[in-house]
Design a binder for these strands. Structure first.
Length: 817
DNA sequence: TATTGTTGGATTTTT
DNA sequence: TCCAACAATA
C-alpha cells in the first residue's frame, strides 16, 4: 500500500532548487525521499543535520506538510536548537508550530497539555538526577532499609531501568531478596512522587508512552496529526524511546505517517545508559524500510584521518556497514607519540599545542580528548604552567550548582509547598536552627499522617516546631510578596528574602556563588524574552489543527513546550515554565563563544563536535579500552566505536599519544599501548618516537628527559595554587551564558519576521486590578497582563482557587463591575 | 552546628 | 591521589 498517494513527487521547481543546491546524490535522495519509513545511515561529518533540516524545509516548501504536521526529535537541547536555527534561516516560517525538541522536552509539552488525563498537576515539577537520588534516599530511610544493602544509587538505577523497559512495579517479579526490596522502594517512590507532584526524566517518557497507549482518542489525534516524524541519533534510542516512537507514528501503512530515522551504528557509545543500537535493525525490519540510504561522503576530515577511522572500525562485527570517503586529499599523517609518563605526555602535548598556535592555529581549534575525566588533571596542570588558556568541559552545569539549586528550591516551594525534596534542601539552609533530629521528627509526623512536610510542621512540639513553623511562614510570606511580580523580581526577592544572598555575602568563598545567583536572574530574564513571556512578545499565526484536544495554540506557550488547558485556558506561570526549563536544560558547560582556549573533554563529550586539531591521549590498554570494558566483546566494540568517534572529530591534524607509566588512583601503573593503535593503518601514521620500542626500552624516557631539561619542567615547580580548582587561565567562566545565548542562539527566533509583525494587536479590554469572573474558578482579580492579540495572557488571583495564568484567547473571562 | 578526621571508591552520562 | 560522604569532635 502506498503512503500518502496524493503527495507530490520530488519537484525540482524553482522554489525548492535553492534549498537542494549543493547536496550530493545521497543527501538529495534522503532530503527528497517520498513519504515512507526511511533509515539514513549517516557517517560522521556527512552533513546529517543539514539533511534533516533541509528535508523539513523541503517538505514544508513543497506543501507536503504543514508545520503542525512535523515532529523532529533529538537527544540534546543543543541539537534541537541547531535544527530550529538552521530551519528559520532557510525558510521564513513559524517554527513554533512544529514539534521540534528533545524526547524529554516533547514529553513535557505533551504532559502539560494533557496533565489531567496523565494524573499530574499542571505545574508538575521535574526531578533531575540529583533530586531523584535524594528522593530515593528519603524513601529508603522511610522504609527503614539498610542503605548498605539497598544502595540508593543502585536503586535509582533500578528504577530508571525499569521505567526505560516500560515496567511499572506491578509488572516486575523480583528475582531475589534485594530485588524485592528495590521493588518496594520503587513502589513507595512512585507514591511519593505522586504526592509531591514531581516526575523524573524517565517518568516523562513512560507517562507519555502510557497515555498514548491507553487513550485511543489521544493516540488517534496525534497519529493523524504528525505526518512526518524525524529522529536524530537513532542509534542512541533506548527501548522505551523506540516504543514511544511507534506509538506516535502508529503502523505507517495505517496512519500514513512518514518516519525518517537518522543514525550511525558506528557512533553508538551510550549502551551503558540503555541505548540499543539494535533499534536500527529493528526499525528497518519492523517498519519495512525499502532501502537504507547511506551518507558516506565526509566533508570534515582529510584522507589519513578517515582511512584510520575506517580501518579501526572494520574490526567491529555486527555493523550495518559503511565506509567514509573524502575528496579533500590525504592530508597529514596522524602523529603518534609514546611518552614515558602521563606527565611527559602532557608536556609534549603542551609543546605541540604552542607550536601550532605559533603557526597560526587558534587555541579553540585544538581539542584534547581523553577516556576518563581523571586524566584531565595532569594536562590542565601542564597547560596552566605554560600559560596556555584552556577550558574543561564537564562537571557541574549551571542549574546544577548548589547555590542555584538552593534558589530554585525556594522558588519551587513558592509554587508548590508540598515539594518535600525542595523543602528538605533548604529547610535549614541558610542555617536557622533546624537540625537533623528535628527534620527526622517532622518526617515521622508527615509519614504517619500521609501529608507533606510543610503540612506537618505543627506536629513537632517545642522550640524546633516553632522554628519549622517560622520557616514555612517565611516561604508563605515570599509567596505573598511575589504574587503578581515579574519573574525577574520574583527571583530577586527570593534570593534576598531566603537569606541566601546574605549568607553568601558573608562567606569567604561566596563571591562566585553570588555571581551565579545574579546570573540566575539574568538567565530568567533571557528566558522570559526568548520564550515569549515578555511583554514585547510578538504573537504568531496559529496553525495548529483545531480539534477537541489541541485548540488554537498561542505561540508563546508553544515555545515553552506547554499547551493551555483546553477547558479553562489555564497556562503555567512564567515561574513554572522557568523551573521546567532549568530541569530540562541544565545549561551547557561550554566556554563562552569567542574565548580562545584549548578544549579539554572526554571522548563522550566530544561526540557531535569537530576541531581542526585533535589530541587523543592515553591510548593504553586498560585505559582505552577501559579495563572494565575489555572482558566481553560487546563492550570492547563500544570502546572501539568510542575511539572511532574520537578520530572522526579531527578536521586537519590528529595526534595520538600514550605513556609507559601513569599515575592512577595514587599508584603508578605500567601500561601497554592500546590495541587500537595496532588497528590503525601504518601508512597513515607518523611516529614521533620510534615505533615498537615497546615498554621499558627507556628510549622515550631519555628523549623526554633531554627535552625537559631544556625548558618546561622547571616552571612546574612552585607554580602556585592548583589551577584546576579555581579556573586559572580560564577563570570566571560560568557555564551558562545567558547573554551570549540571547545574542547567538535565539537571534533567529526572536527577530521580528515580517509575517510576525503583521499580527494586529487587539485591545483586550482588561486591566490590572480589574475584577473578573471565570466559569470554573469564579471571581478573581487581575494581577498582570502580558502579550497581545491571540498571545495575550493574564494572571488572576482567584482567592480560594489560587493564582492562575490564563490565555485570554482560550479562557472565558467576563469583567465584573 | 561548623570543623576536622576517617573511610571507601574512583569509566563514560545527551535528559 | 584525591574526592565525597559520613562520623566524631570542639
Amino acid at each position: 500500500m502506498n503512503f500518502m498517494p496524493d503527495a507530490p513527487l520530488p519537484d525540482p521547481s524553482a522554489a525548492s532548487s535553492a534549498l537542494l543546491k549543493g547536496l550530493n546524490p545521497e543527501q538529495l535522495a534522503a532530503v527528497t525521499a517520498p513519504p515512507g519509513p526511511w533509515l539514513i545511515l549517516a557517517g560522521a561529518g556527512s552533513g546529517k543535520t543539514r539533511v534533516l533540516t533541509t528535508r523539513i524545509a523541503w517538505l514544508l516548501q513543497t506543501g507536503q506538510v504543514s508545520p503542525a504536521g512535523v515532529m523532529a526529535v533529538t537527544f540534546t537541547n543543543k541539537a534541537a536548537k541547531e535544527m530550529l536555527t538552521r530551519l528559520s534561516a532557510m525558510l521564513p516560517i513559524n517554527t513554533r508550530g512544529m514539534w521540534i525538541g528533545t524526547f524529554h522536552g516533547l514529553c513535557n509539552r505533551f504532559l502539560r497539555a494533557h496533565y489531567k488525563v496523565a494524573g499530574l498537576p499542571q505545574a508538575f515539577q521535574i526531578l533531575d538526577t540529583q533530586d531523584q537520588l535524594s528522593a530515593v534516599k528519603r524513601v529508603i530511610k522511610g522504609l527503614k532499609y539498610d542503605e548498605e544493602k539497598v544502595i540508593p544509587k543502585q536503586t535509582t538505577w533500578f528504577i530508571a531501568n525499569a521505567k526505560e523497559d516500560g515496567l511499572r512495579p506491578k509488572d516486575i517479579v523480583p528475582r531475589d531478596e534485594l530485588g524485592r526490596l528495590q521493588l518496594s522502594v520503587y513502589e513507595a517512590y512512585e507514591d511519593q512522587c505522586t504526592r509531591e507532584g514531581v516526575v523524573d526524566f524517565a517518568e516523562l517518557m513512560l507517562r507519555t508512552y502510557e497515555l498514548m497507549r491507553d487513550h485511543a482518542e489521544l493516540r488517534a489525534h496525534y497519529q493523524r496529526r504528525f505526518r512526518h516524524i524525524l529522529v536524530d541519533e537513532f542509534q542512541d534510542t533506548n527501548k522505551l524511546q523506540y516504543a514511544w516512537l511507534k506509538m506516535f507514528s502508529g503502523r505507517p501503512e495505517e496512519t500514513g505517517t512518514s518516519v525518517l530515522a537518522v543514525g550511525d551504528d558506528d557512533q553508538s557509545i551510550y549502551a551503558f545508559r540503555g541505548a540499543q543500537v539494535g533499534n536500527m535493525a529493528d526499525f528497518e525490519r519492523e517498519f519495512k524500510v525499502p532501502g537504507v540510504i547511506k551518507l558516506e561522503q565526509n566533508y570534515r576530515s582529510f584522507g589519513h584521518i578517515l582511512d584510520s577511522a575506517n580501518a579501526l572500525i572494520a574490526n567491529n562485527s555486527r555493523r550495518l556497514g559503511k565506509t567514509l570517503r573524502t575528496d579533500a586529499g590525504a592530508g597529514e599523517p596522524l602523529r603518534i607519540y609514546e611518552a614515558s609518563s602521563d606527565y611527559a605526555e602532557a608536556q609534549w602535548l603542551v609543546d605541540e599545542a604552542r607550536q601550532m598556535h605559533r603557526e597560526g592555529q587558534a587555541f579553540k581549534e585544538i581539542a584534547v580528548l581523553y577516556r576518563s575525566n581523571a586524566q584531565s588533571r595532569v594536562i590542565e596542570s601542564a597547560l596552566f604552567n605554560a600559560g596556555v588558556p584552556y577550558k574543561v568541559y564537564g562537571g557541574l552545569r549551571f542549574f546544577e550548582r548548589a547555590e542555584v539549586k538552593h534558589a530554585l528550591a525556594y522558588l519551587r516551594l513558592i509554587e508548590n509547598p508540598n515539594d518535600d525534596t525542595s523543602f528538605l534542601r533548604v529547610v535549614n539552609f541558610p542555617a536557622r536552627g533546624i537540625g537533623a533530629r528535628t527534620v527526622e521528627l517532622l518526617q515521622d509526623a508527615a509519614r504517619s499522617s500521609a501529608r507533606s512536610l510543610a503540612q506537618s510542621v505543627t506536629a513537632v512540639p517545642g522550640k524546633s516546631g516553632a522554628n519549622l513553623q517560622a520557616f514555612v511562614a517565611k516561604v508563605d510570606a515570599m509567596r505573598e510578596a511575589t504574587r503578581g511580580l515579574t519573574l525577574r523580581h520574583i527571583i530577586e526577592h527570593v534570593v534576598e528574602a531566603s537569606g541566601l544572598a546574605d549568607f553568601y555575602r558573608t562567606e569567604k568563598e561566596g563571591q562566585e556563588r553570588l555571581e551565579n545567583l545574579a546570573e540566575l536572574v539574568n538567565a530568567a530574564e533571557a528566558f522570559v524574552t526568548q520564550e515569549g513571556f515578555g511583554k514585547d512578545a510578538v504573537a504568531l499565526p496559529v496553525d495548529e489543527p483545531v480539534g477537541t484536544i489541541a485548540q488554537g495554540l498561542p505561540a508563546a506557550v508553544a515555545r515553552v513546550d506547554t499547551l493551555p488547558d483546553a477547558e479553562t485556558g489555564e497556562i503555567i506561570s512564567p515561574l513554572v515554565a522557568f523551573l521546567t526549563h532549568a530541569a530540562l536544560e541544565a545549561g551547557d558547560n561550554q566556554a563562552q563563544a569567542g574565548q580562545d582556549a584549548v578544549q579539554l573533554m572526554t571522548v563522550h563529550a566530544a561526540k557531535g563536535l569537530e576541531f581542526d586539531n585533535v589530541f587523543i591521549t592515553g591510548l593504553e590498554e586498560a585505559l582505552f579500552p577501559h579495563e572494565n570494558s575489555m572482558k566481553d566483546g560487546d563492550s570492547l566494540e563500544e570502546e572501539r566505536r568510542l575511539m572511532y568517534v574520537a578520530i572522526t572529530r579531527a578536521r586537519k591534524r590528529l595526534h595520538i599519544s600514550f605513556c609507559q607509566t601513569r599515575m592512577l588512583h595514587g599508584q603508578t601503573r605500567y601500561n601497554l599501548k592500546s590495541r587500537f593503535l595496532e588497528e590503525l593503518p601504518e601508512e597513515s601514521l607518523k611516529w614521533l618516537t620510534p615505533r615498537n620500542q615497546g615498554f621499558g626500552s627507556g628510549y622515550a624516557r631519555q628523549y623526554q628527559e633531554a627535552w625537559a631539561s631544556g625548558r618546561g619542567l622547571g616552571s612546574m615547580v612552585g607554580a602556585g595554587a592548583q589551577p584546576w580548582r579555581g579556573g586559572g587561565a580560564n577563570a570566571g567562566s560560568s557555564g551558562y551564558a545567558g547573554k551570549a545565548r540571547g545574542e547567538d542562539d535565539f537571534k533567529d527566533l526572536t527577530a521580528p519576521l515580517p509575517s510576525r509583525m503583521a499580527q494586529a494587536k487587539s485591545e483586550s479590554g482588561f486591566k490590572v486590578g480589574q475584577s473578573v469572573f471565570h466559569g470554573k474558578f469564579g471571581e478573581g482579580v487581575i494581577l498582570t497582563l502580558e502579550g497581545q492579540g491571540p498571545d495575550a495572557r493574564v494572571q488572576v488571583n482567584f482567592g480560594r482557587h489560587g493564582t492562575k495564568w490564563l490565555m485570554l484567547s482560550v479562557a472565558k473571562l467576563t469583567p465584573i463591575e
